[in-house]
């Protein structure tokens, strides 16, 4: 199965810009399906980012984050080829992890 995480991390002269897209339904628990039954909430709670094994950024999300979440941030340092580890877990205990290389 392909990874649910798509990353684009570009190392600039002094900062690295990270953009990530995660495939996830992010069901809020307020939406009904076409039969009128509520779709139970199912959303990512935590996304962690570590550069060279050192945590740089942590996202805590609630159900109000859009489906297939997008996130952008930047950190100081980073050079081409450095590993960036990304992992997410959701409220049902599912998750995924990947290691990207800085571009």
């Amino acid at each position: 199965m392909p990874s649910t995480i798509r990353v684009r991390a570009i190392a600039g002269s002094d900062t690295t810009e990270v953009q990530v897209l995660i495939q996830h339904p992010m069901d809020s628990g307020f939406v009904k399906d076409k039969n009128g039954t509520l779709i139970p909430s199912h959303y990512i709670e935590t996304v962690t980012f570590a550069w060279n094994g050192k945590p740089v950024f942590t996202a805590y999300w609630g159900p109000a984050v859009s489906k297939d979440p997008y996130l952008k941030f930047a950190f100081k340092g980073g050079k081409k080829g450095d590993p960036l580890q990304i992992a997410w877990t959701d409220n049902l205990g599912q998750g995924d992890a990947t290691t990207a290389r800085l571009l």
């Binding site: 999300w61 609630g62 159900p63 984050v65 859009s66 997008y70 952008k72 941030f73 950190f75 100081k76």
Partner: peptide
Amino acid sequence: GNPFTLAASYRLSPGTEADVSCRLKM
């Protein structure tokens, strides 16, 4: 205006830039 007001909360390590973008439901 959302049922639960908090949408997203981010923790930044020292050295991480205060520049964050994401997409929310309203």
